[in-house]
């Protein structure tokens, strides 16, 4: 029978907290940057310009169709060989996760925009609005209703994906856990605590997503 001993971890509580905050900070950054990238790529997909469409298509497919772990290692270890520019582990991590998330967000945003009745853009155009104004004032506000639940889901996945950055020695929650394990030789307790922390942060978030789906259905 294994003898659980969580007491020993109490001395590491600040490391756990540090790691958790780092994970949350990275998540926040990659969500914001990813949404920006996704908005650009998603709208480029809908552009009349075939070059823009092709560029965004290539971007989306490259990042959707290769494993995130491979992308992280490539940006950290391979890109500097190619460009001669060293990226800090943090920069490489945030950049890769943002690009990866952006490629999924782009598809959500594109889908949300094309789901809006084309009659809506026609009505905006018929008033004399420019296509950019129509997108901003008529189409996107309606598309966002459909987009928010899948964007939130994707963001929850991003939160979990941040655990991969530990392979680049970015001091996130998982990385701190590895440090603590090497100190205490208590992997079972450490990784259990880490799993619980992820769980405790995400359960309320998924509840919010569920709730927002319902309120959005009813709102204007």
């Amino acid at each position: 029978m294994y003898n659980w001993d969580f007491d020993i971890l109490w001395g590491y509580r600040w490391l756990f907290l540090n790691g958790t905050l780092m994970t949350i900070a990275i998540t926040a950054a990659v969500i914001v940057l990813g949404l920006l990238l996704g908005l650009f790529a998603g709208l480029m997909q809908l552009s009349r310009n075939p070059v823009l469409r092709w560029i965004s298509w290539a971007y989306i497919e490259i990042f959707r169709c290769t494993p995130l772990l491979v992308q992280l290692l490539w940006f950290y270890y391979a890109l500097p060989v190619l460009t001669g520019v060293e990226l800090s582990a943090m920069t490489a991590a945030v950049m890769t996760l943002s690009l990866y998330g952006g490629s999924f967000y782009a598809e959500v945003i594109r889908g949300g925009v094309i789901a809006v009745d084309p009659g809506q853009s026609e009505a905006g155009l018929a008033l004399g609005m420019t296509p950019a104004k129509v997108m901003k004032r008529i189409v996107l506000p309606q598309a966002i209703k459909q987009m928010i639940p899948p964007l939130m889901n994707q963001s929850i996945i991003q939160f979990k994906n941040t655990s991969l950055v530990s392979v680049l020695a970015v001091p996130d929650l998982l990385y701190q856990g590895q440090v603590i394990t090497m100190d205490t030789f208590r992997p079972l307790e450490v990784y259990t605590v880490i799993a619980v922390i992820y769980f405790v942060v995400l359960v309320p978030l998924t509840a919010i997503v569920k709730r927002s789906e319902k309120t959005l259905q009813r709102s204007h």
Binding site: D117, G119, Q120, E122, A123, G124, L125, A126, L127, G128, M129, K133, R137, I138, P141, Q142, H220
Partner: peptide, 30 residues
């Protein structure tokens, strides 16, 4: 286009705006 008004078979009102905002949209934005 701003010099021609168009009325569609399926109305195409902006569902996220009130009636008043629908009517104000053209003058405000264009």
């Amino acid at each position: 286009r701003s010099n021609t008004g168009m009325v569609f078979q399926h109305f195409n009102l902006f569902p996220h705006k009130t009636v008043l905002q629908n009517v104000m949209e053209g003058p405000l934005v264009v």
